[in-house]
Write a protein that binds this DNA or RNA. Structure first.
Lengths: 132, 132
DNA sequence: TCTTACCTTTACGTTAACGTCAAGGAGAAG
DNA sequence: CTTCTCCTTGACGTTAACGTAAAGGTAAGA
């Protein structure tokens, strides 16, 4: 019996990640085609490392937010951008500002909607009380 | 010259709404097919009233949030739900709670992402300063 | 009356993001 | 060696949300 010293494995198969994140193999392979994850290959099999796991989580969070994969890639790629020289860095900061602007627009829309739903709910509760 | 007493018209053509909201006629007609707007018909022409204008704005806000039209309809329809009897109202409140839960999940995701981007930005600025 | 602008329906085309077979390899267990 | 289980690569299918002609109606202005 091989000792399982690694506490929890530091690599994953496609099936393990699929189970953990509740997606199909197909989805993960699709994300690989799109360059969102880049698993190592041992022979023909895929071996996913921590970086891939993190990126997959980021992608799925982006999906929950309703971003398309293009937008998602732009955000995810920011997480492991290399320093680079000044021009690059300034451009990079511009990109970050743009993403932030989008996210803040969304947050604003969400807060407006939540406020309106609260009002709709208030009226419904009122009507309900008046039935008693 | 017909007096334009109506300050700004209280009805709109499809083109006016399309221009105002930056979408195409096709999009609005599609939303009509989906029952998201229900313009009056005068002969064959569509006449949009305030209700349609409001609903269109809600739909587009839903799109900015990345909801699909199914989710959007569920939210939008809440805005002009009729009181109804107790069972209906309780079900209605459940639905509101569900939509709110989705929106709050999104808000959480957005705040996490904004925080992470702020950190990424901080590091980029740091690197930039160290070049001077 | 003839443009011109705006509207109409019908209907096939397109893109994103996977779903869904089909056919087969690789290794561990019995 | 055979049977499982999990993996692999194609490759065509599907759904949502419109895009994009095609072909024509209508009302106002020159």
């Amino acid at each position: 019996m091989e000792t399982d010293t690694a506490t929890t494995s530091t690599t994953w198969t496609i099936g393990e990640l699929a189970d953990e994140f509740g997606v199909t193999h197909r989805t993960i392979r699709f994300y690989e085609d799109q360059g969102l994850v880049t698993p190592e290959r041992r022979g023909t099999a895929r071996v996913f490392h921590v970086r891939d796991r993190v990126r997959l989580a980021l992608v799925l969070r982006g999906k929950r937010l309703g971003f398309d994969l293009g937008q998602i890639r732009r955000i995810v790629d920011m997480y492991d951008e290399e320093p680079g020289e000044e021009g690059q860095l300034r451009y990079f900061l511009e990109q970050i500002a743009a993403r932030r602007a989008e996210l803040e627009q969304r947050r604003q829309d969400i807060e407006t909607t939540l406020a309106e739903l609260a009002e709709v709910e208030r009226r419904a509760r009122e009507t309900l009380t008046n039935l008693a």
